[in-house]
């Protein structure tokens, strides 16, 4: 595959954790190329290394060995502050437990990333409202997270992840806390945004709903990628 089209290019990623005296290899030499515009689901049983890989690809964690290039940048050479900046400008995140900022409204949550980027207030609020409308939450802009359902909160998280127009959105078990209807609806929304706007999604999930929605399944087992289906 032509590497120029690759958004993510990982080689030989290894990540070990210590559990008492024992050393556990959560990633055991992962190679992964992910093209721009992909809608891929990292699938596998619990403990297969999905979240660990997602954390490293999201520059939230560092591997013990291997190389990683994202958007052509060798992100493993970055300092913590540079990684934070990289995430701010290049990445969006959706987490399992909604993880919105509790004291901010839906609009303020979405606008927060734009505020970190120094976007003027009027502009960031306008863009936040537009993204909330895009994910079907028009009219709920001023609600706090505890005034929204789980599905609505996850849609706010999607809007927040996309508001800064990142190169890639990384989602860790985004449907895990949702009922099946909300889960399907969320996956449909993300797939639609991928198709309509070309946003790259990499989703870690073992939820069949998520796997059904994937354009590509990246199967993981014991810290390795064992199969890629549908590329």
């Amino acid at each position: 595959m032509n590497q120029d089209h690759m958004l993510i290019c990982a080689r030989g990623l290894v990540r070990r954790f210590h559990s008492g005296q024992e050393e556990v290899a959560a990633l055991n030499g992962v190679d992964l190329d992910l093209p721009k515009g992909a809608f891929s689901v990292l699938a596998g049983r619990s403990g297969s290394g999905k979240t660990t890989l997602l954390n490293i690809l999201g520059t939230l964690d560092m591997p013990d060995a291997g190389t990683l290039s994202i958007s052509g940048r060798d992100v493993l050479t970055f300092s913590a502050a540079e990684r934070a900046d990289f995430r701010l400008y290049r990445m969006g995140f959706i987490f399992q437990a909604y993880n919105l900022i509790r004291v901010l409204s839906a609009r303020e949550n979405v606008a927060y990333v734009l505020q970190l980027r120094g976007v003027p207030k009027a502009e960031r609020l306008r863009r936040a409202d537009a993204w909330l409308a895009e994910v079907g939450l028009a009219g709920l802009e001023t609600r706090r997270p505890d005034q929204l359902s789980g599905g609505q909160q996850q849609r706010v998280a999607v809007a927040r992840a996309l508001a800064s127009e990142p190169d890639i959105v990384l989602a860790d078990e985004p449907t895990a806390n949702l009922d099946s209807h909300s889960g399907e609806s969320l996956m449909h929304l993300m797939r639609e945004l991928n198709g309509k706007r070309g946003v790259t999604f990499l989703i870690a999930s073992h939820d069949p709903v998520a796997m059904d929605a994937a354009r590509e399944l990246v199967m993981m087992e014991d810290g390795r990628i064992v199969e890629r289906i549908g590329q």
């Binding site: 999201g58 939230l60 913590a80 502050a81 934070a84 900046d85 990289f86 995430r87 701010l88 400008y89 990445m91 995140f93 987490f95 437990a97 993880n99 919105l100 900022i101 509790r102 927060y112 990333v113 970190l116 980027r117 927040r160």
Partner: peptide, 16 residues
Amino acid sequence: VREFGVMMALGCGRWR
């Protein structure tokens, strides 16, 4: 702590 973790993931620096 979790909220801070999310904010860091979003690109908020530690000093901020």
